[in-house]
């Protein structure tokens, strides 16, 4: 179904610059209140995290034995932990790890998944069968379990954790991309590209991927949120980052002992994780709607 607007499109005649789909998508996104809210919250969190050194006078690793277990106060907005370290400082610095690792892990997964998915989807045949069965095996194991096993197998360290996180995410992105590619496989503009001498590789890169990326973009946005959670889980059980690195999940783990007597210790890391995940999810939902104009009309 072509939307009313597209059918009647005769304006834009005589314009030098025109409305690309990117621009149109962005405008649609801005009209979605929850997406805008999510976007703003996320940007604020990101800024806080990036500007950490300028926002807090404390050192995240510095012990302060005189100020153990302080509840929230004007000096320490989120209180201090069992070593007297300022919790807010640890949260801000910790965010750098959580968020950046989340982005990097999903970034790698996206590259791997998009390549794999588009090749399998466009070329099909034997290659597709083999790769898909391989990915099936991966997906048969519950995500978090897989991540835990990989992390345990690979050992500690940022790079290894990132590898574990991205590998577990590749199959779902690949599958999504493949499905999206298969939808446009029959499109005439692909045939047209072949008719003008486009090689298979160029067709995939210039014609197939840009037109089937939309669902993957949404998945990637949501994926960052989910990766942040997975990272927190890994740290919680001791497989992620090592102390004194202030990763949010690790902070949760530390605080679990004191949950009844010092609830603020677990509350604040929890809030930050929740806000990050929520804002990314809102953004992702909004993107899904913005990228599919048919839904709106």
């Amino acid at each position: 179904m072509i939307s009313i607007r597209t059918r009647f499109r005769t304006k834009k005649e005589g314009r030098e610059k025109s409305e690309s789909t990117l621009h149109a998508t962005f405008m649609r996104l801005c009209r979605n209140p929850t997406a805008v809210f999510g976007g703003i919250v996320f940007i604020i969190l990101a800024l806080l995290v990036i500007l950490a050194p300028w926002l807090t006078p404390y050192d995240y690793a510095a012990y302060d034995t005189k100020n153990l277990f302080q509840p929230p106060s004007p000096a320490h907005w989120c209180g201090t932990d069992q070593f007297g370290r300022d919790i807010l400082t640890r949260l801000l610095y910790g965010g750098r790890y959580s968020m950046s690792m989340g982005f990097i892990a999903v970034g790698f997964a996206a590259i791997g998944g998009v390549s794999l998915g588009s090749i399998c989807g466009y070329i099909g045949g034997r290659l597709d069968d083999i790769v898909m069965r391989f990915l099936d095996i991966f997906q048969a194991i519950p995500g978090i379990l897989l991540t835990i096993c990989m992390a345990a197998a690979l050992g500690n360290g940022f790079d290894k954790v990132i590898i574990a996180l991205s590998l577990t995410r590749i199959p779902s992105i690949a599958r999504l991309m493949r499905g999206s590619v298969m939808k446009i496989r029959g499109m005439e503009y692909l045939e047209a590209a072949e008719a003008i001498g486009c090689s298979k590789a160029r067709r995939i890169i210039k014609y197939v991927i840009p037109n089937s990326m939309a669902p993957v973009i949404v998945e990637v946005t949501m994926g960052i949120a989910s990766t942040v959670l997975q990272l927190a889980t890994l740290s919680y059980i001791g497989l992620g980052v090592q102390p004194p690195t202030p990763e949010w999940g690790a902070m949760l783990s530390d605080a679990k002992r004191y949950i009844l007597i010092k609830p603020y210790m677990i509350m604040f890391p929890g809030i930050f994780i929740a806000l990050t995940v929520l804002s990314l999810n809102f953004l992702g939902d909004g993107l899904r709607d913005a990228l599919d104009p048919k839904l709106k009309d």
């Binding site: 789909t21 005439e188 045939e191 047209a192 008719a195 001498g197 014609y207 840009p210 037109n211």
Partner: peptide
């Protein structure tokens, strides 16, 4: 490919939506 060309039926699906 230079000598033998084709014009397609559907003007809506024969052009890459992402290319000007």
């Amino acid at each position: 490919r230079s000598s033998l060309q084709i014009i397609f039926q559907d003007p809506y699906s024969s052009l890459n939506p992402r290319m000007t």
